[in-house]
Design a protein around this nucleic acid. Structure first.
Length: 270
DNA sequence: ATGTCAAATGGTATTTGA
């Protein structure tokens, strides 16, 4: 099973790139963020033409998240079920795997009220992770946090900024403490691998980036991971998003009559 | 002077957010 996450920075502006990428890469599930779309305007039919069902949770100008799947979408859950006014998380079950697409608030600056909202939102995400049902689980998206200095092209220049602050990093560690694995980092422990580069100043060309897009997976999926990587090529060319997709492939995760694959099959069982 | 995208708006530029 192949699962990816991608902050597309407007599905309207990125539709052709997204459908082309889906056609080329054929992930089973793609989690997308920053659709900047309403549910009415979301281009579900264009996405269906390349073979994907979609569940979208949007509000319009800002935010908006979706799950695209070619292996079914069941039990869709929009938001945390609280009074959060912003459309930032959607969950669904695809081929027995419970997946969430999340767009963590940016935070803006450490003294901005939005930073408090970000920390509270991450806390709410931690509750969701801690109370999850057993079974294959993927929490993917734009976390707007670089978990360690290895995930930041120049930690010194980020001193005092959001995305690298200790409370934000502690919130990511709290997610991991529920048993989730930061997949790309677990497979590539020492590589400075980035998933976002500012549009400004030739940042991509100079590889001045951050790794803020994550796939956090439960331990059983972590053990079955065959690959986990950033598709840097998707950041190149005409009209790219400022984020690249993060992709993972898992062995022995399949849809058996709509139920979850057994947790006890061991790695490598087809 | 971070200087680039994208969306929305009494708008053919500005603002807001990232």
């Amino acid at each position: 099973m192949k699962i990816a996450t991608w902050n597309v920075n407007s599905i309207a502006a990125r539709l052709e790139r997204v459908t082309t990428w889906l056609g080329d890469e054929r992930p089973d599930v793609l989690l997308i963020q920053e659709t900047k779309s309403t549910d009415d305007r979301f281009p579900a039919s264009a996405i269906a033409e390349v073979g994907y069902q979609a569940a979208h949770y949007g509000q319009g100008q800002w935010n908006g998240v979706a799950i695209l799947s070619r292996v079914g979408i069941e039990d869709v859950e929009r938001g945390f079920g609280d009074d959060d006014p912003e459309a930032r998380i959607i969950g669904a079950t695809c081929a027995g795997v419970r997946v969430y697409s999340c767009y963590v608030p940016n935070g803006r600056s450490l003294d901005d009220p939005h930073y408090g909202y970000k920390l509270a939102w991450l806390g709410r995400l931690g509750e969701l992770a801690a109370s999850r049902a057993p079974g294959p689980f993927v929490l993917g998206g734009d976390f707007n946090v670089a978990p360690t200095d290895l995930d930041c092209w120049d930690p010194a220049s980020f001193f005092g900024a959001t995305h690298v602050s200790e409370p934000e990093r502690a919130a990511i560690r709290a997610l991991e403490a529920t048993g989730l694995v930061d997949l790309v980092r677990s497979l590539h422990p020492d590589e400075p691998t980035f998933s976002w580069w500012d549009y400004r100043g030739g940042a991509f060309h100079q590889n001045h980036g951050l790794r803020i897009d994550l796939l956090l997976v439960d331990a059983s999926l972590g053990k079955r991971a065959r690959s986990g990587y950033v598709d840097r090529g998707a950041r190149k060319g005409e009209k790219p998003s400022d984020h690249a997709p993060v992709v993972a492939e898992f062995d022995g995760v399949q849809n058996v009559g709509g139920s979850a694959a057994s947790m006890n099959d061991g790695p490598g069982v087809a």
